[in-house]
């Protein structure tokens, strides 16, 4: 696989970095474009529940005066989603797969101030 450039060290590129470190390819279509699936290994999932800390909560509350983007939450959700994806990739590796296809994400508020981020897909072996 030709490595796409990931020079930026912002949160936005972290998922790609994790995926490349673990060595699992991801896609949200039924195939890995450009590869052939030889074996399907079933559904793999990864989830994480995160709560905001009081400081971030307070700052976000202040930001609500003018509205707009709440950067603290954006970063927190990004980090948590990367962790959920990481766990999904770990499960895929432990089953002996090297790619996850048809990845889907779900978010739900499980308790006041906490959110569950959930990623799932089908682990496959591709060539």
């Amino acid at each position: 696989m030709q490595a796409p450039s990931n020079q930026g060290d912002s949160n936005q590129t972290q998922s790609t970095v994790v995926a490349q470190q673990v060595g699992v390819m991801l896609s949200n279509v039924e195939t890995i474009p450009g590869k052939t699936i030889v074996q399907s290994l079933g559904v793999v999932t990864g989830s994480t529940v995160r709560a905001k800390n009081i400081g971030k909560d307070f700052l976000a509350g202040l930001k609500n005066i003018v509205g707009g983007e709440l950067t603290g939450y954006t970063e927190l959700l990004q980090e948590s989603r990367n962790e959920a994806m990481g766990r999904m990739m770990q499960e895929c590796l432990s089953r002996g797969g090297n790619a996850v296809v048809n990845v889907r994400f779900a978010t739900s508020a499980v308790a006041g101030g906490a959110a569950e981020l959930f990623a799932y897909g089908t682990a496959v072996v591709v060539q």
Binding site: S15, L26, N28, G34, L70
Partner: peptide
């Protein structure tokens, strides 16, 4: 190919 994600939280 590879997965691309983007998010924003807004109030």
């Amino acid at each position: 190919s590879g997965l691309v994600i983007a998010n924003i939280s807004i109030g």
